[in-house]
Nucleic acid binder design. Structure first.
Lengths: 143, 143
DNA sequence: TATTGTTATACTCTATAACTATA
DNA sequence: TATAGTTATAGAGTATAACAATA
């Protein structure tokens, strides 16, 4: 009986903590989505802009956004339509780099300020708590 | 200039910690998905089974799974096809309760054991670390 | 032969709205 | 009138596979 009870208890504890983690991740995403929305930008474009702190190949952006490269074509098109980024040829002529325009940089700065003001980890945790949190998260990722 | 730099630094820190949280949540989900898969069960069915520790109205299951009630019909159908749960009428005759069958309970026990063995929070954190983590997560959720 | 970006397409997940039966 | 469950359908998000240009 004890094995059963213990396994059920551990299921409960794992479920609780994992549930908290998932909820936090979802709320973090929601906060970011709201921030993007306030700037009139779909989330996937905002995520791209944030990751374009320097010109990078489209393939690399796909890796950073953890999605298939076929998705990046559309993202690049939309960024270009909005005048936020442009495709520039790479040395390897198969490659196209994505580079923010001045307008794109300005928008990225706006995102930066809004995220800083609203991100959960900054809003709800003080410096000590964040310092405490980081090693726990790294342990969770097996780092 | 300082404001700009500080905002960029805070964007980076928020991005790092939020990124860690999102990655952990996704890996936790992946671990659960793998566990479900090993039992030949789609994730949404496994999640339902875990939440059915007692007979509950379908509407309530929708709330627990944080989805629209229209999705529960299909879940209930599939659980029923597999002989894992059955619909039982409630006192209020509009309501149908979902109740695990003996087979369903057995499977739930299997899930319980496998999750206990593989959940990230149990596998990579010791008791102290979990005790440290919980209040931080609760603070993050504003609780 | 392998890789980059592109295109068209298909799939998964989830929500919405309309319907029924009860309250 | 309002609510529980059902049904059909539509939309968002994402992946797959085939293709052209280049390595």
């Amino acid at each position: 009986m004890e094995a059963v009870t213990s396994s059920e208890q551990r299921l409960r504890e794992a479920g609780e903590l994992s549930g908290l983690l998932v909820r936090i991740a979802e709320e973090s995403k929601a906060v970011f989505a709201r921030t993007s929305d306030e700037l009139g930008l779909p989330v996937h474009l905002a995520r791209a802009v944030v990751n374009l702190d320097e010109p990078i190949p489209m393939r690399e952006l796909a890796a950073l956004l953890a999605c298939d490269r076929s998705n990046i074509t559309g993202i690049a098109d939309q960024l270009q339509e909005r005048g936020l980024a442009e495709r520039v040829p790479g040395q390897d002529r198969r490659v196209k780099l994505l580079r923010l325009t001045p307008t794109g940089w300005q928008l990225r700065q706006n995102i930066s300020e809004k995220v800083s003001a609203s991100a959960l980890v900054l809003q709800r945790l003080d410096d000590d708590q964040r310092a405490q949190l980081r090693p726990l998260l790294q342990a969770l990722l097996g780092e």
